[in-house]
Design a binder for these strands. Structure first.
Length: 191
DNA sequence: TAGCTGATTGACT
DNA sequence: GTCAATCAGCTAA
């Protein structure tokens, strides 16, 4: 069973942290791919200069400010897609960027989409690689993460890892906020 | 309408 | 270490 709606209706930082160890599942027709989340970043409301609640697409605002538990997908640098989970209750903007996965299911399909070898360690490492490996596109924007073809399942093993925090990667505004979370020592965490 | 920018990646010096 | 790819949507005019 996917994580329930109430999981997302909490402060963004808490969701970002608790998402570590959970499993993202993508169903594309017959192809099933999934990976364990090992790295996330929190994006808050308008007070967070890097958040799309403060800048960027006005068209995404209804989604951003809407009830948590939906996917927010956008194109970056005209080249890659990034996957976010919307958090908070309606009227409370926030989302969590999913940066890296440890491949769990459908490795062959992921490798095919990426055009790399199946045993490649970085199959779903980095936001752009992750969406490509799972076949996630703009068409998944707004998708319900509690049911359907894109869901997030609770951890499939005990949380026996340590969590580290630090500045977000690649952001130019509010770059000093410690809103990045990752599993210490995991080989699938991006540089 | 034109110009610019970015929550990235991979190839190359 | 540098740099190009490539485009939706914002900003200025």
């Amino acid at each position: 069973m996917p994580l329930p709606r109430r999981f997302y209706l909490r402060p963004t930082r808490a969701v970002a942290r608790d998402l570590l160890g959970c499993v993202l599942v993508s169903r594309r027709g017959a192809a099933l791919t999934a990976g364990r989340i090992v790295e996330t970043e929190a994006y808050l409301g308008p007070e967070d200069g890097a958040s799309h609640a403060a800048i960027r697409p006005v068209a995404a605002r209804p989604l951003f400010y809407g009830e948590g538990g939906r996917a927010y997908v956008f194109r970056i640098y005209g080249v890659h897609f990034c996957l976010n989970a919307i958090t908070g209750r309606a009227g409370r903007p926030g989302c969590v960027l999913i940066r890296s996965l440890e491949p769990v299911l459908g490795l062959a399909a992921m490798a095919r989409r990426r055009g790399v070898a199946g045993d490649s360690p970085g199959l779903a490492r980095g936001p752009g690689n992750l969406t490509r490996a799972l076949g996630i596109t703009r068409g998944d924007n707004g998708a319900d993460l509690t049911a359907g073809r894109l869901t997030i399942e609770p951890p499939d093993r005990p949380r026996d890892f340590r969590i580290a925090t630090g500045p977000r990667v690649g952001v130019t505004r509010d770059a000093d906020r410690r809103l990045r979370f990752w599993i210490v020592g995991h080989h699938c965490v991006s540089r």
